[in-house]
């Protein structure tokens, strides 16, 4: 039954207004992205009218998306995670070992994801029930996991050449007709996450706990369970990111994931999720990942020296912070 109220509460303009209200930050980020791409285009129309530049970004963008989206959940719940690059490497390591040993790819993938989930749960339980600062604890745990990988492998990489020929793995990452199919998987991941974040009990509780943990507790929510849940999700995303990154590169490196730490954090905040918790945007974070990825490629493509990349990355973070200031009113 859909009751209509005198103030036209269910009328269409209400729906549109609600959509804008819900997606303000994401819409702002999208605008930012468009402007940035236009500037790149003007900087070098020749390169930016060529599909290859987009292809090279879209090939690796899914890896960033698998990391950014769960991190939006973590920041919304009022925590932070710096250990995800190590979890990513660990999960990918197990996957690569599985493929190398000749196990069916599906089994190797499951093993990798399971390791991601297990590490995510362990990190979440330690941080939440140990009542540690997540910033410091995940920094330490990240080093610990990375160190363990280094010690165990002696720093050697694994070349999983079998990947290139395996039909199952081609389904995850290949480019028929010049389009990287991993983007489709990333899109599915984003779509499911948007529902989880905005239209699922878990997402609602993530918001409430990040907003006011004491109130959430008084209303019968266990904030600790919700917090651990976000870390489990992060482990899942990091596992996927590691597996995809290995499939895309045909190789596993013990340093896998390291270069993702700062860009992923930047993408969350560039995307319009504020640092203080309680609010955020999955779509914005996804667009933020695209912004960060395109800056890295775009600067070089636009004819500037590679040395400019960091400078422009910084510029974009600062500009987006200023932009989001109007979108992010902090209620107290």
């Amino acid at each position: 039954m859909n009751k209509r109220t005198p103030d036209g509460f269910n009328a269409n303009h209400g729906l549109i207004r609600r959509f804008i209200q819900l997606n303000r930050a994401a819409i702002g980020t999208f605008g930012f992205f468009i402007v940035m791409m236009l500037l790149f285009f003007c900087g070098n129309p020749h390169v930016f009218s060529d599909w290859r530049i987009y292809y090279s970004v879209l090939t690796v963008l899914p890896v960033a998306i698998f990391l950014v989206v769960p991190l939006v959940f973590i920041v919304t719940v009022g925590e932070i995670d710096l250990s995800f690059p190590s979890v990513m490497a660990f999960a990918a390591w197990i996957f690569a070992l599985g493929v190398q040993a000749g196990y069916p790819p599906a089994a190797a993938i499951l093993a990798g994801v399971a390791v991601g989930l297990a590490l995510g749960s362990a990190i979440g339980l330690i941080v939440v029930y140990g009542e540690f600062s997540s910033l410091v604890a995940t920094l330490g745990l990240g080093f610990l996991i990375r160190g363990a990988i280094m010690i165990a492998t002696g720093g050697r990489s694994i070349a999983a050449t079998g990947i290139a020929k395996d039909p199952t793995l081609r389904l995850l990452s290949s480019s028929p007709g010049g389009f990287p199919v991993q983007m489709i998987w990333a899109a599915v991941f984003v779509a499911v996450s948007v529902i989880l974040y905005n239209r699922h009990r878990f997402g609602a509780r993530v918001h409430c706990v990040g907003d006011n943990p004491e109130s959430a507790r008084q209303m019968g929510i266990d904030p600790r369970l919700v917090r651990v849940g976000t870390f489990v999700f992060m482990g899942f995303g990091a596992g996927l990111a590691g597996i995809f990154s290995t499939i895309i590169n045909f190789t596993w490196w013990p340093t896998a994931g390291d270069s993702y730490l700062l860009p992923t954090l930047a993408a969350v905040f560039v995307g319009g999720t504020p640092t203080w918790g309680g609010v955020g945007t999955v779509l914005g974070g996804t667009i933020g990942a695209a912004i960060v990825s395109f800056t890295q490629v775009g600067i070089v493509a636009a004819g500037l020296d590679g040395f400019y990349v960091q400078f422009f990355n910084g510029l974009i973070i600062i500009l987006s912070l200023i932009g989001h200031r109007w979108n992010q009113i902090r209620y107290r």
């Binding site: 907003d211 006011n212 004491e214 109130s215 008084q218 209620y331």
Partner: peptide, 9 residues
């Protein structure tokens, strides 16, 4: 007494 509200929601 503190109303237990999440004010950003």
């Amino acid at each position: 007494q503190d109303r237990a509200l999440a004010v950003q929601q």
